[in-house]
């Protein structure tokens, strides 16, 4: 299998958020919303690949978009990538979001860089009503508003400091949204604490949800077992693996750290 793919576009979306559009028939033809790719950073400086969720898939153009925040050496190296460069990419990997065509009313709730894998859910889902609730630190952190606006029927944004949209957390947006109207399914991605609170709110109302988990990863395909995530297993618990069993899990399966 040839893992080398060409970069069509590389763009800076905000101070530390970058988008890379990759030409790949292999990945675009089989990828689904919520899956990820595992990318080798250029140069010898970092050893492991970097797992990055797929933000958007263009199946006719045969491209995928990944969007990431510069957080360390690896993502810094990736941020230097330019159009025309090549990347060594494994993927698509993992279990993505479940899209049930019978669901007529869905909601996505994203916090910070957790919003990115939710875009393709909106693009792929045939539901009539698609609500997007996005939370950011502040106005300067708001990205991809136009894209989320385009593929949702209702978009609400919250910022921690109130500098854009509603002041508060995405959990507050979710509480309001589900008190007015009951979605058939909710898709969540963001910081662990935000996902935990969202799952709790939805459980009270018995609304099903899926969450996309994050953990330090090795092989990305389920062999090395490092990216463990605590999950319910009957009356017991077990360590599932984010790379292969996830990254997307049913919200009721995850045992969050504070439990």
């Amino acid at each position: 299998m040839n893992l080398i793919e060409r970069v069509r576009k590389a763009e800076r979306l905000s101070s530390d958020i970058y988008l890379i559009r990759i030409e790949s028939e292999r990945i675009s033809s089989s990828a689904s919303a919520g899956q990820f790719v595992n990318i080798k950073c250029p140069g010898p400086e970092v050893y492991l690949r970097r797992p990055i969720s797929i933000c958007s898939i263009d199946r006719s153009e045969k491209t995928i978009d990944i969007v990431f925040q510069v957080r360390g050496k690896g993502t810094r190296l990736l941020s230097d990538i330019k159009a025309g460069d090549t990347l060594d990419i494994l993927g698509p990997l993992g279990r993505g979001f479940t899209i049930c065509p019978e669901h007529k009313n869905i909601l996505v709730a994203g916090g910070g860089i957790g919003i990115f894998p939710l875009l393709q859910v909106l693009k792929d889902h045939p539901a009539e009503r698609k609500t997007a609730l996005l939370g950011f630190r502040n106005k300067s952190a708001v990205v991809m508003e136009d894209e989320f606006n385009k593929y949702s029927t209702d978009l609400k944004i919250a910022t921690d400091d109130g500098s854009y949209g509603i002041q508060g957390f995405v959990t507050a947006l979710l509480q309001n949204a589900i008190s007015e109207d009951r979605p058939d399914m909710v898709y969540i991605c963001g910081p662990a604490i935000m996902m935990e609170q969202c799952v709790k709110l939805l459980k009270e109302k018995d609304i099903p949800c899926e969450v996309s988990m994050e953990q330090r990863m090795g092989c990305g395909m389920g062999a090395c077992l490092v990216c463990a995530c605590k999950t319910r297993s009957g009356s017991d618990w077990d360590y599932s693996h984010v790379c292969k069993d996830g990254p997307v899990f049913s919200g009721d399966r995850i045992i969050f750290e504070s439990e």
Binding site: Y47, R216, A228, K230
Partner: peptide
Amino acid sequence: GNPPPRIAETPSGI
């Protein structure tokens, strides 16, 4: 097995 994180990247290794 042990609780996560279970991996740390190091210079030329893990």
